[in-house]
Design a protein around this nucleic acid. Structure first.
Lengths: 213, 213, 213, 213
DNA sequence: CATGAATGAGGCTTCATTCAT
DNA sequence: AATGAATGAAGCCTCATTCAT
């Protein structure tokens, strides 16, 4: 069983090796301009080998997102488990988590939003699709729980918690995409972090009930 | 001269005919899966004809966005010219405008955000690129002016107006993309309008200075 | 009949206008890279019009050569009619004529040799083909007559006169092609005239019977 | 190591297989009418495979010439190394070599002259271009050395040796092109060999200094 | 006669994927 | 399991030619 285990570990390592290469190449060239050969070169493997680990190009692409979503899921759990009780504190922890998620892998997270917003989505295998779906839903639900607590506590405005979570997530992805595409257009430094900060502030203020409300 | 005019009109009509077809096809299949032949078929023209009106596939794609951006620009002007004076009123008018922009052409607006967030952008002709850039910048500036007025009036929080405009725009596009991709995943009706409404409410509340601030 | 004549003249003029444009464009871009639209633009006509005067692109191309061949034919006649009697003198006149032919239209003459040496030849209409054939043959025969006289006079070596004409013509075209392709390779000035001069000298010496032969 | 060697040999064999097919197709249809698919069919390979061995159509075309030029180069060396000393003997050896070059691959040699005299030349990759250039120059230089020796020995006329080499080469290619295009026109047997023979005789006589000179 | 917009066949090339070794 | 050569489908685009005006 030790041997079988090691095999499994090696297989997983190889998988990661490919994912890392893919991440780099996709980030640099985008989904369509990146070729499987590019990725194989970057991974120092042959094209054929990629297909031993991923069914096709689209699945490989989507797999990148899975890692982020998994990380997001873990962070969401932490927020609930570790953060101080109280919706305000949890919201803050949530925001912190989002920065970490972005930092965890900025290139891939942009990729993920591209995926989200792309025809590619339509061609994924059902299994991968449902994995993504489940992970997304799980994280959105985790976020929603925070908002729900706040609403029940009378601190947050009465908007459907899931809707708030969607808005929060939309804001996060919207800012990242828009700021990074501004960068493509203007060739200047991106202001993702700074804009995210302001955006979260606006959001936090926006859902909080002030005294006079 | 009457004849020349008619020719010009016909040429413009043909252009529109292609644009309409392209819009439909791109919306259905996305940029990469859509072929020029698909579009030609939809427009009931031959592939070659498309190239009499658009330099290549990418320019055709980008042209769709241009129309939206132009409409957005017009609406932004109206907001400044026609809306009741006062930042509050203008913000409301701005939000109204955004709904109209979305309604003007929902499919294309989703497309535009895909374009924005895609490698495609890198291959556009410089002219088209700069047109898009200018139009975007113009509209963002128009939005920023509203926020600036509000800040000066002491009604809105002191965040750089351009940043607020970016956030507003990011929120708008983020919601549309996320909701429409949720639809792909869940096959359910999309909640774009409803979510936008809540999002704008959160945003409006978020930038307003309440008494105790 | 005056009117009909004028029409015919105008038609011919238009034809020449096209030929002049074609010459320029073909010389610049070569047969395949040159498009009918290029030529139409250069002639300040519409593409459709070209087809009123020439059956297709290949015929237009070949027509350029006809002008040269006609000029060559005329010069050959002159040589026989005007040159001092005696093969030596006629050979000299022939060589002079070749320079003139080259000067008459250097670009087109290179074109003609390209035509000669090209698949294009295979696709010409039978009529044009036979025109070219006749003109070529006529000129070759005229040249051959000079050599024949020289042989009969015991001045030139006993090689079949037609063969000598072919060799003469081959030398002429070979030098022009080789020198002009060297120019493409080396970007230097071409040495066509200088090389032609030496070539003709070698040829003349080569066919002359010296005393000891 | 044995395995790597075999792979290399197989790769080279495959290359040759393509070259042979290309030669046949190009000779039959000419550069422009020949399609990559034609060649792939002839080679019993798929179109994509051609691109594993040649960057594009033009490079494939040019590669054919390279082989001839290489052979020419080898023969030129032999002439210098093996031929009896003395310019006369070397000139004879040179002429022998030219026949062999022609026989080595008549179809391709005609192709090469087409290439030489064609717009195609302008689009070659710089590397291939410089290879062709170098090989050509080398052979021309080798020829020139023969003439130089003859001039120094007082046997050949005082014309710049490089010019004589150019003339010699022009005569060779001119005869081949003209005779083969006459064949297209007349559908008769070609007289390339016979005409070459006479041409070389004329040339040899032409550069030799006779007693009375 | 002239126009020039439209055609549509067809070429080159790329690249995801397969499969014999 | 890994390779990497081969595949071949399919896409974009060009451009000679036609034809209604």
């Amino acid at each position: 069983m030790g041997i079988r285990e090691r095999k499994a570990r090696e297989k997983e390592r190889r998988r990661q090796q490919i994912i890392v290469a893919a991440k780099r190449v996709f980030s640099q060239k985008g989904f369509n301009k990146a070729t499987m050969e590019d990725i194989a070169d970057e991974a120092e493997l042959s094209p054929g080998t990629l297909y031993l680990y991923f069914k096709n190009k689209e699945e490989l692409y989507a797999s990148l997102s899975l890692r982020i979503l998994q990380y997001l899921g873990i962070r969401m759990e932490h927020v609930h488990r570790d953060a101080e009780p109280g919706p305000e504190e949890k919201l803050e922890a949530l925001i912190e988590a989002m920065y970490d998620v972005y930092d965890f892998d900025p290139l891939t997270i942009i990729n993920m939003f591209h995926l989200q917003s792309s025809e590619t989505l339509r061609n994924l295998s059902p299994e991968l699709m449902s994995q993504i779906k489940d992970l997304s839903k799980q994280s959105i639900n985790d976020m929603a729980r925070i908002f729900e607590e706040g609403i029940e506590a009378g601190i947050f405005i009465k908007v459907h918690p899931i809707a708030l979570a969607d808005i929060f997530w939309s804001l996060f992805s919207g800012v990242i995409l828009w700021e990074s595409s501004k960068k493509v257009i203007n060739q200047k430094k991106d202001y993702i972090k700074e804009t995210l900060e302001s955006a979260f502030e606006v959001f936090s203020r926006g859902i909080r009930i002030s005294i006079e409300d």
